[in-house]
Each structure stands twice: as C-alpha cells, then as structure tokens.
Write a protein that binds this DNA or RNA. Sequence first.
DNA 1: CTGTTAGCGCTTTCAC
DNA 2: GTGAAAGCGCTAACAG
Lengths: 334, 334
Amino acid sequence: MTVTIYDVAREAGVSMATVSRVVNNNPNVKPQTRKKVFEAIERLGYRPNAVARGLASKKTTTVGVVIPDISNSIFAEVARGIEDIANMYHYNIILCNADKKKEKEIRVINTLLEKQVDGLLFMGGVVTADHIQAFRTSSVPVVLCGTKDEEQTMPSVDIDHEKAAFDAVNVLIAAGHRDIAMISGTLQDPANGFARYQGYKKALDAAGIELRDEYVRIGNYRYESSVDAVKYFLELSPRPTAIFSATDEMAIGAIHTIQDSGLKVPQDIAVISVDNIRMASMVRPTLTTVAQPMYDIGAVSMRLLTKLMNKESTDNMQVILPHEVIYRNSVTQA
Amino acid sequence: MTVTIYDVAREAGVSMATVSRVVNNNPNVKPQTRKKVFEAIERLGYRPNAVARGLASKKTTTVGVVIPDISNSIFAEVARGIEDIANMYHYNIILCNADKKKEKEIRVINTLLEKQVDGLLFMGGVVTADHIQAFRTSSVPVVLCGTKDEEQTMPSVDIDHEKAAFDAVNVLIAAGHRDIAMISGTLQDPANGFARYQGYKKALDAAGIELRDEYVRIGNYRYESSVDAVKYFLELSPRPTAIFSATDEMAIGAIHTIQDSGLKVPQDIAVISVDNIRMASMVRPTLTTVAQPMYDIGAVSMRLLTKLMNKESTDNMQVILPHEVIYRNSVTQA
DNA sequence: CTGTTAGCGCTTTCAC
DNA sequence: GTGAAAGCGCTAACAG
C-alpha cells in the first residue's frame, strides 16, 4: 500500500542504507547509484515517512510555536519572522493556538513536547511558574518571544516595554500635555500591562506631573474595552487632553469613542500608544504610536533557538530589541 | 535519560502492554493495576512519545491545516472554528502558513503528508491541478474550506460567493443607486475574485443597469490597493454614487480615500462589501457588508474531515453555508 | 485482566 | 561506496 524505503531499495537494486543516504543527501554515494535511487523513488512515488525518521534519528526538525491568540495581528506578524528564519534553517514550524488561556497553554506545550519537537517558542502572555515547570520537564530548548519570565532566567527576545511607554508619554508631554490619562492592560501582565504602566508613571514623574488615579483605567487590550474607559475620562474634570493607550487596538477604540462624542482627535484629545499594528495607519486620524519590531522579534528568537538547538554558544540570552516612535496624526506635534 | 514505557513497566512491576493500555485508557485494566501504573508514571515523570506511537499505530491524531496568509484575520477566524472542533474530537492541529504562494502551498502540503497527518484542511486561495495532484498522492482525506476546486470534485465548505455579491449589490440598488462601481479581486481567484464579480454583473443585469468597464477596478484584497481604485473612480463622470468592494479590507481603504478627498460616506458615495471582518464595526462610518460565517466554515469543515477520517458516510460533500447582510452605516437605507 | 512478541519505517554504527 | 543488522518507543494481535 504505502511505499517504504525498502521498496525503493529493492526497485533500485541497492540496500535500504543507500536509499537512506540518498534521501538525506549524504555525499558518500556514487553519482550513478544516486541516480538509480532517484529514479526508483520517482517511479514508486516514494515519500519519506517523517514519523519513522523522527523515531530513528530522535530529531524531528520541527519546532513548536505556541501563539496566545491567533486572531491578534501582532502575533501573526511575529509568526512571519519566526517562519522565515525557520525555513532558512530547514525547520518546520507547528503553530498552536492557546486562546490566551493559561491552562490551554500548558496543555499545548505538553502536546508539542510529546510530539518531540526539537525546540519551543513561546509567544507573548504571562509566563508563570507552571509554565517554567512544563518547560523544565523537557530537555529541548525554549525561547520566549515578546515576553519574558519574572526571574529572567529563560532565553527571551523582547522590547523594553517600560521604556517604550515612557517614550510614548514623553511625546505627549513634549506636545504640551499635562492632563494625560492612560488605558492600561492588566497589571498582572508583566510586559504589555505592568511595564507599560510603569513607563507611564515614570514619564509623569520625570516631568513633575502628579499621577491621578482616576486618569488610569484597565482595559483588556480589545477595542471595546477602551470605549468604556474613554467614556469615563470624558466625564472627568479636568478632562484629560491626551490619552496614552497600552496598545494600538485600544487606542483606535479610544479615537472612535472620542469622535463619536463630538470631540476631535488630536485637537481636543490627543492619542498615542504602543505597537504599530497595520491598522494604525488605516484609521483617521492615523495613529501616532511606538513601533515594536514584531517581525524581528520573531526572527531573532527563532535564530536564537536554532543556536540553542545546535548547542552553539550564545553570549546574550536575553535580547532586547529597539523600538521607535512613529509620528502620525493623532498627536499634534509641538 | 528519557524515560520510556519500558521503564514505567519495570517500575510498576507490569508489562509494557499494560502501561500502554493505561496510557490509552483501555478499560481492560484492573483499577488497582491502573493505579500502580499511574503512580509509576508520576514518579518517573513519563511522557508518552507521540512519534513512536504514531509509527506503531499509523495514526497521529493530528490534522494539518494550510493557511494562505496568517496575518489575514479572516483565516484566523476560520482557524478558531477548526480548532474548537478539532479539540472536541481530540485531534491536534498543526497550522502551516503558505504566504499565499502556490509553490509554498504545495511544499507545505507535502511536508504535512510526510509528517503523516491523519487529514488535511486547505484554506482559501486558488486550488489548481497541481494542488489536486499533491492531494491525490496521499491517502488521507482532504477538505477545502473557504474555497472550492474548479470541478467541485473535492469535499469543501464555503459560502456562495456569487450570491453574496449579488445580495450586496442589491442593497445598493434598493437604496436607489444606479452608478455602482466595483473593486474586484483578481478574476483568477474563483471564490473571492471571479464569483463575486459575477454576482456584481448579475445584480446589475437583473436591475437593467448597464455594466460600464471603467466602473470596475482590480485590487489585490489589501487596503492600499483600493486607494488607487477609488482615486480613479473619483475622476470619472458620472462619478459613481456607490462602490461595491469584493472584500472588507479594500472597502475600508475605499472609505478612507473617499473621506480624504473631502467627500462623505455614505452621503456622497455609499460603500458595501463582503466578509464582515472585525474591523468592519470599528471604522467610521461602520461598514455595511455581507457576513460570511467564518467560524462556522472552519467548524463545519473540520467536522466533515473527522467524518471522512473515520470513514463515516457523508451525504453532502460540498457544503454551502448561508451568508447574511449586516446593515451598518456605510450605505444609506432607502 | 495481563504478558509476549512482532513489527511500524527509518537511521546509524560497524564491517567489508 | 555499500550492505547488514540493531534498534528508536510504542501498539496490537495473540495467548493465556
């Protein structure tokens, strides 16, 4: 039924070992023999069985990628970076969505490990002790991308979220704003949540602006969640003249809510955030934001993982990539 | 080093077969024995090797999903539907991005087949003879989702794109429009391209409106591509009073281009499209569009695939799911 | 209810 | 350059 390496060997009049060598590009095969084998493969329509190969060689040339939320375009962009480098090094990637659920993340990590992936990339989200525990039960290398663990003991690739937020708020301050509200993510989230909030606080602090509790609302990163936050801000007095959103998606929700209330962005209220998703240049006004290099985060973390899988020495296990303010039209420049 | 089923057997004082039964939830094990085995597993930290299991059982409980473009939110939503049903039937899914490149699609299909997936889901895009050929070289079932092949010989789940487009254009006609332009996808694409164009043509025809060549521009489904199309339309005389876009993303580009030119949507030019991506309710004005049930397309195709993998009989191999007009604010209702 | 025994399809020494 | 043979870790008859 299915044609195996043995069938090919017989058809070509050689041993399985030789066929294996040909398939794996081992140079120790006479060109003529190689040709015979290729012909037999062609004739029989042989397709190597990666499962059998994986069992025999104890390598699958596959890396597992756990993605917290497949419908989030940020992760999609990171995934592209991962893919490109993976292809370059001849690894296949298997992407597993975890729905932003911790329990599912752990389950997915275990599934991937059972499938004997050669390495693991864990994207975004919170990295708990349970995650670390799951990683430890395996012997394959793991790289965190777009996040890091509390103790910073694991290899990771990320931006400096606090500094990014700091820079964003400073754009607002430089434009003359003093009444600056923030739509934050949950403070439980060390990267997109807590760190960005810290950056906001420090920027205000550095400018001698007092932090006002009612100027901070917690959202869930979704468009809808910023609608409520902004409605709340709109009732305040003094009403904020600028809003710093932890993410672009919430910023876009903010812009629309402001506009729906009859106010103008940036004239009445300026808006800035961090991420630079594709949509940021698709709204009106276009969104001023701090870009994180999503593709590079993916690419660099995959590259780091290849080194780890090859047991190459690596100097820097905790990579921080640079970010950059993208000036568009949701903040009036000074 | 790695602990195997054999180690567990020894530790628990039973045979490998018994351990295998316990791990696979085979009822033919005395509760007490089962307990002993579980304890041994726990003590040793045993994790079953899915690769070995796959080789021995010739089943991987894994289905491969090829996704044309991971950064396209439509596919992401379809993927959610696939995932949910896959989990329900205890299949893992491995997602492979193909960058909308035919060559890469074929390569990915072959990789997946080498990995011995139990079934294949092929999402969106054009299905050529080469694709069919690749599918045929394998013995596992394949379901197309969100697309279909020319000859409709393969199992598939999709909407009636032509009818969806027809309905969209009719909304415009019902609102009194006669000068209706279209931003189409490539006519090579049977689903999102050709079929939607056909629907446009037929709707005009049914209303006795003559088709004008200059009222049709071809885009590439991206936001940017509709900018040029709309600029072209704006110069025309008579200027169209409504635009039908083959996809939401291009429709959003259209709306912004119209607004940037100083005109208003829907007062000066109405816009409608097909898809209903999340962003459709996030733009201003919110986008009137024909919704395709993305989650369901994924869910139904995965369900169909499970039936095929179990060799259950299935009456309907070419499923067409219903679509629905979502009235929002980019078309003034009559 | 449990153990024995063949493989699954391939890689990988080790000889020749 | 090539072949023989021993597994990789597990499942699946088949016995008992």
